[in-house]
Simulated assay, not measured.
Amino acid sequence: MNALQTFSNLLQQTAFVSMTWGNILMIFVAFIFLYLAIAKGFEPLLLVPIAFGMLLVNIYPDIMLEPEKSISGTGGLLWYFFHLDEWSILPSLIFMGVGAQTDFSPLIANPITFLLGAAAQFGIYSAYFMAIFMGFNGAAAAAISIIGGADGPTSIFLCNKLGQTSLLGPIAVAAYSYMSLVPIIQPPIMKALTTEEERKVKMPTLRPVSKLERILFPIVVTVVVCVLLPTTAPLVGMLMLGNLFKECGVVKQLTETASNAMMYIVVIMLGTSVGGATSAEAFLNVDTLKIVALGLIAFAFGTAAGVVIGKLMYVLSGKKINPLIGSAGVSAVPMAARVSQKVAAETDPTNFLLMQAMGPNVAGVIGTAVAAGTFMAVYGVK
């Protein structure tokens, strides 16, 4: 074998031979995501693994290779991670970790904010009908519309349950991207729909919540929601189990594991596998553009609906409720609540809305899971 042939053989093994312009474009998108995560701090725990998975699959597509197509009979690394998404294991474990990290006291202390969490789901249902109008079938429309809840795990969960795995990459990336871009997308909508007087409203301090209330809350929510919509049990059940770990006070080791070590291991696998689903051939098509547009519309409509209902509550409460907390009804916890606080503080630096905004924020997590369960019931998924 001469030197030229050796060089030719080595060249054939590089990624340059099979790389397309689509792969190069997706690599560029991965770089943008890495920049937003690292330089701008937009949800780095999510965007860094997603972007790196996107980078890997567009350099080395076989990292998502199915075992049936492999000579050795073994699949690519991210294919196994991806299957944990398809089996709903990773999204459910993420919900357990979120529950172990979340304080539901603001919602328990002010249960009327459940209405704001429910109102923010309007974006999901509006996007559902728009998706059908744009040519998607009912199940695909439902899977796409859940992006409006700004809840990545629920989007992945529903997409798989409805058998729309071919759309998983665009849906998951759109959902996580909009979660990351909450500080950019929401403020203009919030300011456009509220007056300076409304944004200046200072809400009273929330009442103390007893330990008994905090323990009973996850149990009662699980029973009520899962009896009405049993298909939500993997999400709502794990969310509330994680919260029960936190609030019962007798399983500190489980709380620590669920909210830290397990949570971050799952985030790594889920993020890289979502990125791995964004190969150029799967991602670069007209449907992807429609999904990204519909996701943005759903998220914007959800934010607007929450603020509008917040304005109604402002009037009915005698100007005691700040409408800005309505925007926190989307599921991006706690980012959406922080944005409510930030916009309020821009109008009045002494206004502190964070705890009041956490009520609709955590209600939105439950609301999005309920919306997913409703779609599964409609399409006969058990």
Rank of each mutant, 00 (worst) to 15 (best):
V236D: 05
F283W: 06
A280T: 13
K246S: 10
K320G: 02
A293M: 10
Y264C: 04
A304M: 11
C248A: 12
Q356P: 09
V266M: 04
P323D: 10
C226K: 07
I291W: 07
A282E: 11
A337N: 07
V266F: 01
L294H: 00
M240Y: 01
A277W: 03
N243W: 04
L284H: 03
L324R: 00
G295E: 00
V315S: 07
L241K: 03
P234T: 11
A336V: 13
M335R: 11
F299T: 11
A332W: 08
E256I: 13
A328Q: 07
P360A: 08
A336H: 11
S259D: 06
V292A: 13
T288R: 06
C248T: 09
D348K: 03
I309A: 10
P323V: 08
L354T: 09
L296R: 05
L241F: 15
M313S: 04
L354V: 14
G295A: 01
G275Q: 01
L241G: 02
A282N: 14
G276V: 10
A233N: 00
P230R: 07
T303Y: 08
T257L: 15
N243M: 14
T255C: 09
A280L: 09
V224F: 13
L235Y: 05
L270G: 04
N361Q: 05
I325L: 02
L254I: 02
A261I: 14
V333D: 00
T288C: 11
L312R: 12
V227I: 11
S279A: 10
L353V: 12
L284D: 02
K252A: 15
M335Q: 14
P230N: 07
T231C: 08
L229D: 06
A258V: 04
N322G: 05
L239F: 14
V251M: 13
A345D: 09
L241Q: 03
L353K: 05
T231K: 12
N361G: 04
A277I: 11
T303R: 05
M240Q: 07
T257G: 13
V307E: 10
K252T: 15
L235H: 05
M355S: 14
V225F: 12
K290F: 07
S279L: 09
A261L: 15
G359W: 05
T255M: 10
A332Y: 08
Q341P: 09
A300Y: 06
G359R: 02
V343Q: 02
C226P: 06
A337G: 08
A277K: 13
A332G: 03
A258Q: 03
V330M: 12
G329Y: 05
T347M: 09
P349R: 04
E256N: 14
I291P: 02
T257Q: 14
Y314Q: 11
F301Q: 10
V251W: 09
K342R: 14
N260R: 15
I309Q: 10
K319A: 12
Q253E: 15
A277Y: 02
V315M: 08
K252Y: 12
V286N: 12
P234S: 06
L241Y: 04
G310R: 00
I268Y: 00
D287I: 11
T231A: 15
